[in-house]
Design a protein around this nucleic acid. Structure first.
Lengths: 221, 221
DNA sequence: TCCCGCTGGAAACGAGTGTTTAAAACATTA
DNA sequence: TAATGTTTTAAACACTCGTTTCCAGCGGGA
């Protein structure tokens, strides 16, 4: 009990501080003092700051991957043999992303962390996520491939990252944007509200007409 | 000549290091040693590290804003009195963004910096950019408003940030994505190539059907 | 009772940070 | 040439950082 308490208190404190300020800008002393835990506890329980960062992600991504795999299992069973429509796939992913952090505090923290993982250099984090959780994403993209047979492979690859960028960028920068939106339009925006607005945009983006073929340079390449 | 040389050498070195590793992860000693300049030169010429970061941005954003204002002036003159089509507005913005860093090294650095500015906490940077360059963006959004009269104001606000997220996210993470894309699809992707793919997606996203009205909660709010 | 493997706590370590200082070198003008 | 203002230099300052060390307290097994 005592051990668990210290570990989770570190994780709880670290994840919100990381989300607010970034990894390099958050010192272990800030974390441990705000968590009312000894400074050495981080290195004792996690080994290093890098390992702590990865543990913070694992606490979100591990439940996410098992839930997402289960959800895809059900989907494949329902549409046995046939293709799963794109809207259903996107909807399932959105629901899973929403469900995981709902148990804990906030989706906001999770999204901000994802945004940081992509933008902060932090090479080790990117590698860790890629190696540890790349398989779920591969399974998902394969299902998307079946759902959009008319899209060239490379085009689908890029469009998936386009919409990934939209979602992560918007949801991770939500606080700042919400301030502007509330001031200008007097409406309070929730995360679920944003997802509602995101849905038709994402679908339209995936189904957009193909771009014109690249114009070859006049000179030699 | 000597002063200019030192200042620009610092800026040239700093911008690529910042883009590669982030702001907090790049020390002044790394910058000055790689630029073969004395450590104190940064504080002498710029005053502080924060000021250096802002100067790096100003060197891109200052030319961008004057070019963009000029481009919008021409557009308004051509469509005197009438509305400028959305595609033309987006096209003009894309062209301006492409033109500015073309003179120097790379659009890649500029995009990566923009991505960092949004994701890294670095509150001072966000404020600086907002206060210094917010007016061009306001002018642009007003023109977009005229071009999309059927879109509710708040919906247009969010969609603009959706596509902003797509562009910045994709172009700032280009290197990592390009590695995957080249391995999987054996095609080398240039920035101009990405913009070509981005165009129809962005247009489709802006023109997507409106989302269903928010479902009021069953219970009281 | 002694011993043992864990966990918590205070202090220190060494490295690295941004910034400042004061003197030297340079360039410019009188 | 001499004096002036500007730029460069090396050294130090005052921290903060992640990590390590060493010891006190705790539990249960022999």
């Amino acid at each position: 009990m005592a051990q668990t308490d210290t570990v989770t208190r570190i994780l709880d404190t670290a994840e919100v501080l990381f989300a607010e300020r970034g990894f390099a800008e958050t010192s272990l002393r800030t974390i441990t003092s705000k968590a009312r835990v000894n400074l050495a506890a981080v290195n004792y329980h996690f080994g290093s700051k890098k390992a702590l960062i990865q543990a913070v992600f694992a606490r979100y991504l591990d439940p996410f991957t098992v839930r997402f795999h289960h959800a895809l299992d059900e989907l494949e069973a329902q549409h046995a043999g046939g293709v799963i429509p794109l809207e259903v796939l996107l909807e399932t992913m959105a629901r899973t992303v929403l469900d995981v952090p709902a148990e804990r505090h906030s989706l906001k923290v999770f999204m901000k962390l994802l945004g940081l993982a992509y933008s902060q250099a932090q090479g080790h984090l990117r590698r860790y996520i890629q190696e540890e959780y790349g398989s779920v994403f591969s399974r998902f993209t394969e299902l998307v491939r079946l759902a959009t047979p008319d899209l060239p492979d490379s085009e689908r690859f890029w469009r998936l990252h386009f919409v990934l960028g939209t979602v992560i960028f918007t949801l991770s920068g939500l606080d700042a944007l919400r301030d502007i939106a509330e001031k200008d339009y007097q409406e309070h925006v929730t995360v679920r509200d944003l997802i509602r607005r995101l849905r038709p945009v994402v679908v339209a983006a995936m189904n957009a007409p193909l771009p014109p073929p690249p114009m070859p340079k006049a000179e030699a390449s």
